[in-house]
Structures are given as structure tokens and as C-alpha cells.
């Protein structure tokens, strides 16, 4: 069945490279991760991503990024990595005192 596809004659890999797909809706919201596609190169990835993730319109821009180029945070490190540093109370407006009667501060 698929054995000929697994072979690497002329240096072919068994599986086309993976790309992450990001789509932007027309309402001005930022690009958002939609999923992934396999493709040999960026142009093919863009075409595949269009067919899979922009089939029903509602997309004004597409990004494709080789999956192995993404560096992601490690969720086990979340508490320390995303520490909101709540001890920096001076980053909140409630920290400051204003004279009474002054408006629109």
C-alpha cells in the first residue's frame, strides 16, 4: 500500500513538512491560529491553508509558518513564567491618591 511513499528515493521525505496556519478575519481582529497543513514549500502551504481554513471566506489574510520555527513557552513553567508580579501595586491606577474634586483623571 503506502510503502512506496515511505521510501526516500531521490531524497524525498515520507511526510511533507508541517506548517502552522494563522487567519485574520475582516473585522480588524488580529491573526489567530487556525490549525496546520502539510506542504512541500511556503507557496503550497499557503494554497493548502486557503483551501482548508479559508474555504468559506471570512478571511482577509493568511500566515503560514514552519511549525519547527515556532518557539513556545513550556506550560509546566507557567506559574513562574507568567508571574503577574502583583507586588508592583504602583502599576494600578488605584495606587495613586488624587485631590478631591478633580475630574477625568
Amino acid at each position: 500500500m503506502t510503502t512506496e511513499n515511505s521510501s526516500t528515493k531521490s531524497g524525498l521525505v515520507a511526510e511533507l513538512p508541517l506548517w502552522e496556519v494563522f487567519t485574520q478575519p475582516p473585522n480588524g481582529a488580529p491573526h489567530e491560529h487556525a490549525g496546520s497543513v502539510h506542504a512541500a514549500d511556503a507557496e503550497m502551504a499557503l494554497l493548502g491553508a486557503r483551501d482548508v481554513y479559508a474555504r468559506r471566506g471570512n478571511v482577509v489574510s493568511l500566515w503560514v509558518v514552519p511549525t519547527n520555527m515556532i518557539t513556545a513557552s513550556v506550560s509546566q513553567d507557567n506559574p513562574a513564567f507568567f508571574d503577574p508580579m502583583d507586588d508592583k501595586v504602583y502599576r494600578h491606577p488605584q495606587f495613586y491618591k488624587s485631590p478631591k474634586g478633580v475630574k477625568n483623571l
Partner: peptide, 15 residues
């Protein structure tokens, strides 16, 4: 799939 890969290899496009 083979042709797409061969093209990408020839033009050095593979990620």
C-alpha cells in the same frame, strides 16, 4: 506529493 517535494528541493524552498 513527489513532484511538490522535488520542486521545493530544486529551488531550495523546503523549510
Amino acid at each position: 506529493r513527489e513532484a511538490a517535494q522535488a520542486y521545493a528541493a530544486k529551488h531550495d524552498l523546503s523549510p
